[in-house]
Amino acid sequence: MEQQFSLAYLSVINTPPPEMTYMAARAGYDFVSLRPINMGLPNEPDFSLASNKTLLRDTKRALRETGLEVLDIELARVADGIDPMTYEPEFEIAAELGARHVLSSIWSDDRSYSIEQFAKICDLAKQYNLTVELEYVPIASISNLADTLDILDAAQKDNAGLMIDIHHFHRAQDTIADLSKVPKELFRFVHLCDAPGEIPTDHDELVRIIREGRSYVGEGGIDVAGVINSIPTVPYSIELPNKEQADLLGYEEFARRCLVKAKEYFKKNSRSNQEINMR
């Protein structure tokens, strides 16, 4: 399978879906990963495609004109007080746009509740031929590989999968050995980035790096090659927010550089390319 790349929302945060799509196409990406589900964060723009018909029309036009596809939409969180049914309008639009996956994460400390709600999200997504990829996040309730696999095993949904974010994998201190044991069918895409190797002990610094301080692939301290060579070849969604570089270069050039550096890294370090070079 040829390597394919998507531009993730956090890399160009606050960029509307149509503009993000054109930007991704000009930079050389194969997909876009959109965030039409509003999270209610301070100063977060509302890019709901289900409620904004003009935005939806312009997004459809951008996808049609560029030929790009939507890899996934985010973020269908499991959290106390959130009814999974509120995600249905965006799931319906995602299916209309040809999206493949829904990204989810868990922010409730109630395990039984989390399993039940995650299962509901999967059932809802299945009606629209979408898979649900569960991501663990260092600052969330489910924050490591073992606990994520526990939820997936308990939910027992055939359209549920595991989404590894390379930054989060490193921060959770998960191991390549454990990753290698995960059933290959659970992987459908990966969040690709790098970050400083030292794990912050300060919560605010951890959040800062997650939101705006990640590194170009190959320029941080994470064993990115170890991760990508332990899982099947899947699309790589570049989620690499770096405010300093984005402010310096502008979003489009920053997005292009993220992709160029990722491809350069893969050429030297991915298992598939190493095998080709040995022939």
Rank of each mutant, 00 (worst) to 15 (best):
Q173V: 06
I139V: 15
H170P: 13
D72M: 05
E239S: 12
P84Y: 10
E198T: 15
N229P: 05
D150V: 14
M23Y: 05
S6C: 02
D204Q: 12
G40P: 03
E185M: 13
I121R: 10
E253C: 01
I93C: 07
T66R: 07
T15G: 04
A155W: 06
F187R: 03
L130Y: 03
L49E: 07
P17F: 00
K60E: 12
F47W: 15
I151W: 01
A195Y: 01
D147E: 14
R256C: 11
H167V: 07
E90I: 13
R64P: 00
L249I: 05
L248I: 02
C193P: 06
S180W: 09
V102K: 05
R57C: 04
S143M: 07
G213P: 01
A246H: 03
G28V: 07
A119V: 06
R256T: 00
P183M: 01
P45K: 13
L206S: 11
E212V: 02
E65Q: 15
M1Q: 08
H203V: 14
I209Y: 08
A50I: 06
G81P: 08
Y128H: 15
L63V: 12
V217W: 00
V227M: 09
M278Y: 10
R279E: 09
K53V: 04
L34F: 11
T148I: 11
R211D: 01
I276S: 08
E116Y: 10
P18M: 07
F254A: 01
A125F: 14
N229R: 11
S230W: 03
M20Q: 12
D109N: 15
R171L: 05
E44S: 11
L124G: 08
S33K: 03
M20L: 15
R100N: 12
S215C: 15
G218V: 07
I37R: 05
I231S: 00
R214A: 02
F187Q: 04
A225W: 02
F31G: 02
N269F: 13
D204Y: 04
V102F: 00
L41G: 08
V224R: 02
N277D: 13
M1C: 06
P241C: 05
D150N: 14
G161W: 09
E252N: 00
A8N: 04
E185A: 09
N14K: 13
I121Q: 06
I238R: 00
Y113P: 03
I13N: 12
I37S: 11
S270G: 01
M39R: 11
T59C: 09
A25Y: 02
L145W: 06
A27R: 06
N273Y: 11
H203P: 00
Y128Q: 08
L75V: 11
A95S: 14
